[in-house]
Amino acid sequence: MEPRNLTAISEFLLLGFSKEPAFQPLIFGLFLSMYLITVFGNLLIILAISSDSHLHTPMYFFLANLSFVDICFTSTTIPKMLWNIQTQSKVITYEDCITQMYFFLLFAGLDNYILTVMAYDRFLAICHPLHYTVSMNPRLCGLLVLVSWIMSVLHSLLQTSVVLRLSFCTDLEIPHFFCEIKQVVQLACSDTFLNDMVMYFGAGLLGGGPLAGILYSYSKIVSSICGISSAQGKYKAFSTCASHLSVVFLFYCTSLGVYLSSTATQSSYSGATASVMYTVVTPMLNPFIYSLRNRDIKRALKKSFGKETMKGPIALGQLHLMAELKA
């Protein structure tokens, strides 16, 4: 078959999870619920941190950034999937596919880097507590987030730019619910050696590097905690890392599970189903992990909603008082 350039075809087909029409309403309701929980849960974390001055610390600054990235991460894939189910269409244009791929890689990279930065923050707080406030100053916090953005943007640009050089045949069905880069490259008729090398490089840059930094930070943290004499001190030090460690474990285990399952099986829909774990489930669970065991977040949320509930009675009382004065 003679390969043709994709610009002449101009669209892909996203196969999603199931071809059965009877399952589509169930899938729509399930993913809409998970998406709304993810967005509102992470927005509550951002609201709590921004409204409470006691939470204006490096740890919660990075957590607010992680919540923002999680909202953007799920928003790159789920709304399009829901729209396709609602309109009973599987089409995504070439331009939309490249755009979705770019932002998906961007926010996936940011998730990795911010989790690494949070591990570094915990390393300084536990291993070097006397120098923590001086070392982890607002300027360094902003610089770490800025570098994370720059690295993610450059990586995403590199990955999507090498996809633009590919030529595609007429079979443009993607067995996924979004434009996953590996699935798109497999549809190409032209040589994909450069794309494969760039993807391996990206996997090392986004996976191996940050994971090595996290493991190194926690190896030092564990050795420092073991050196604490009191059991209460050990528990307090470990409790500051428990939420972050849970998120790291969930994110990396689900991500690795996706790629291991995709290489172990040839099922068209297995990769899409497995990808739900780290693209939807993990961002949805992050607010629960950070809020259920965190008294500061709970207090800030109660304080925020307490103020909102008091505004109504106060405003009505002021109006009543003004009416009496006028009379």
Score class of each variant (00 low, 15 high):
306 G>L: 05
77 T>E: 04
69 V>N: 08
90 K>M: 06
52 D>Q: 00
40 F>N: 04
58 P>L: 08
127 C>S: 12
77 T>C: 04
1 M>P: 12
245 L>W: 10
150 I>H: 01
4 R>V: 14
63 L>H: 05
219 S>H: 03
145 V>L: 12
325 L>R: 14
116 T>L: 11
71 I>S: 02
7 T>E: 14
289 I>C: 01
225 I>Y: 12
319 L>E: 15
133 T>E: 14
277 M>A: 12
223 S>P: 00
79 P>K: 07
231 A>W: 01
17 F>R: 09
160 T>W: 02
252 Y>Q: 06
19 K>S: 14
98 I>Q: 12
245 L>D: 13
246 S>P: 00
172 L>R: 15
243 S>P: 00
304 S>L: 05
295 R>T: 07
128 H>N: 08
3 P>E: 10
69 V>S: 03
266 Q>R: 08
175 P>G: 02
74 T>L: 01
113 Y>N: 05
302 K>A: 04
87 T>L: 13
116 T>H: 13
190 S>H: 12
169 C>F: 10
305 F>R: 00
239 S>P: 12
77 T>L: 15
73 F>Y: 04
16 G>F: 05
168 F>D: 12
131 H>Y: 02
226 C>F: 07
90 K>G: 14
55 L>Q: 06
183 Q>F: 10
281 V>E: 09
155 H>Y: 09
10 S>T: 07
303 K>P: 02
323 A>T: 02
209 G>R: 12
11 E>D: 03
290 Y>F: 15
12 F>Q: 03
23 F>G: 03
117 V>S: 14
31 F>L: 06
1 M>L: 00
224 S>W: 02
17 F>I: 14
129 P>T: 05
319 L>N: 08
309 T>L: 09
77 T>M: 15
179 C>Q: 00
145 V>K: 05
314 I>W: 09
88 Q>I: 05
241 C>I: 03
203 A>L: 12
295 R>C: 02
285 L>V: 02
42 N>F: 01
55 L>N: 03
97 C>T: 03
99 T>L: 13
24 Q>P: 07
318 Q>A: 14
115 L>V: 09
180 E>L: 15
13 L>P: 07
145 V>C: 08
119 A>M: 12
153 V>I: 06
295 R>P: 13
295 R>N: 09
198 V>C: 02
